[in-house]
Design a protein around this nucleic acid. Sequence first.
DNA 1: ATTATCTATAGATCTATAGATAATGC
DNA 2: ATTATCTATAGATCTATAGATAATGC
Lengths: 206, 206
Amino acid sequence: MKINDVKTEDIILKAAEDEFLEKGYSNAKMLSIARRAGVAHSMLHYYFRSKENLFQTIFARKMQLFIPTYEDLFEKQLSFVDVLRGIRDARDRFLWSQNSRMPYFILTEILSNKKNRGIIFEVLEKNAPQQMFRLKEMLNDEIAKGNIRPVDFLDFMMLLITMDAASLSAIFICKDADTLDNDLIKNLHDIYKEHNIQLILEALRP
Amino acid sequence: MKINDVKTEDIILKAAEDEFLEKGYSNAKMLSIARRAGVAHSMLHYYFRSKENLFQTIFARKMQLFIPTYEDLFEKQLSFVDVLRGIRDARDRFLWSQNSRMPYFILTEILSNKKNRGIIFEVLEKNAPQQMFRLKEMLNDEIAKGNIRPVDFLDFMMLLITMDAASLSAIFICKDADTLDNDLIKNLHDIYKEHNIQLILEALRP
DNA sequence: ATTATCTATAGATCTATAGATAATGC
DNA sequence: ATTATCTATAGATCTATAGATAATGC
């Protein structure tokens, strides 16, 4: 039974993930998730109690993939901007690779929902506390040097993540839209990355 | 009766607009709109037949405000970039002024929904056909001169609107978020405007 | 006589649970 | 004996409409 136990639970999680990403929390339906998973919908409640809980479980897990391999990033004595670039690349890979609706999802369901907004930071704090600490140190260093105006660390992170998610959402919408060729989309994607960092640093200039 | 007729219809429209902007199409409820408007919910169907229709009616009307006073923009012999800046400013004023959830709404309900995506273009084409024609001419001119790679006019417009709506959504989320001061938000807002145009022109370079 | 408004309710969903039945571990 | 699964259904909504009642125009 243990074997089947794990399997069913995972099948439900996968089905729920697809459903939530595709339709967002409110439009996602328990019956639809059950249908995707090929189980009776009472199973969703058996394993996860409620829709709310199923959602939370998925995204606490999903967000863990947000944590990239930061290990070596701080060993290289990189400049602040280069560290930001490194982190952004990891974030970008995560947002872009998984499912092209992911950035859009992060923006609409996580960032714009105060109740869910903390999830990202909780996961970061929990899974990469040392890296967060190092980054915070670097930020405060820049502030002390007068390169950046005083800003709260979490606000700073919020800024980075939100701008990224928004840009990638826009690119996803354009990609999915009409006759725009892939070449142009790739171009946009490459260019936004550097622009977003410059934009934020500019906005944070004292 | 004519007097009361118009009033009720407008009260419903206003209530529906608030509800749709706040919650999005799916989460908006007819009963909730009726409650906001202070009328029996059957009234919504009396005037607008269905939820779908009510939505369409509101946003066809709302989107008309998207059309700024472009009249003088093309008289001044401005460069292509400056025309883009002028149009962007008008778009920005519209998105920013109305209701701070407007950019977010445009992104999530209009742009990311294929069925609704045409609304913006329909309205533009209907209410500012000459300006659209002039802009199209300018774009094709830039393409002919080799400053911009060949791109469909509607795709180009889509790009501009989507990037703007996304950036403003991000800024709105940050604004609404935490302890970020208004100064910083204003900075971000000022800077993104020029960045977005540069980003798009860069991405469109041949 | 026509138009506007309200009350009541049909018919579809949707989340969640109760209770029966099947599968596994000991 | 315990765990997993299914069927059936309660209880809340939600959209939409039917039909009665009130308000206005002629």
